[in-house]
């Protein structure tokens, strides 16, 4: 018969596991994880910038969407080909002195998986929050490359 505690002449089937080292390892692990944990998670929206010269002949012809935001928060959207020729031009007027997000959303959703390149040309008083929102909206709708032009 197996006895608890190990005081037996017969070979014990029950044995006591010393849990203290396990306890120590787990304590160290918890301390380390608590110290390295990031409480406020910051993520990013990335844009790439072409550095260096690439000739026009080497550039892959790709249709792109150009979004210009003016001082009155009106949006001017146009599709350009690689030779910078404008195909279509659409204007979305501001609503209550902010960008008409409903219309912008509808327009960008309609372009889903048709174009993958977009350029933003904000005006000097465009809020950073609005630029990020527009970039986010474009990325959500399949625009893989979103560029931002400085003033």
């Amino acid at each position: 018969m197996a006895s608890f505690g190990g005081i037996s002449n017969k070979k014990d089937l029950n044995f006591e596991l010393n849990l203290m080292p396990v306890f120590d390892i787990l304590s160290v692990c918890i301390c380390f994880l608590l110290m390295t944990v990031v409480w406020v998670e910051v993520r990013s929206i990335e844009t790439s910038q072409a550095v260096g010269g690439q000739s026009l002949a080497e550039t892959k012809p790709e249709k792109s969407l150009w979004i210009k935001i003016d001082d009155a928060q009106n949006l001017d959207l146009s599709f350009n080909d690689s030779q910078q020729k404008t195909d279509t031009r659409i204007s979305i007027k501001a609503k209550e002195s902010t960008i008409n997000w409903k219309e912008v959303n509808r327009f960008i959703m309609a372009q889903k998986s048709k174009v993958s390149l977009a350029h933003l040309l904000p005006s000097k008083n465009t809020k950073y929050d609005e630029i990020i929102r527009l970039m986010d909206l474009l990325k959500q709708n399949g625009f893989q490359n979103v560029g931002l032009s400085p003033i």
């Binding site: 993520r43 990335e46 844009t47 550095v51 970039m135 931002l148």
Partner: peptide
């Protein structure tokens, strides 16, 4: 761009 950075990451929540 003058310094030659290729990538910009805008920190967001």
């Amino acid at each position: 761009s003058q310094a030659g950075y290729e990538k910009y990451a805008f920190a967001v929540l």
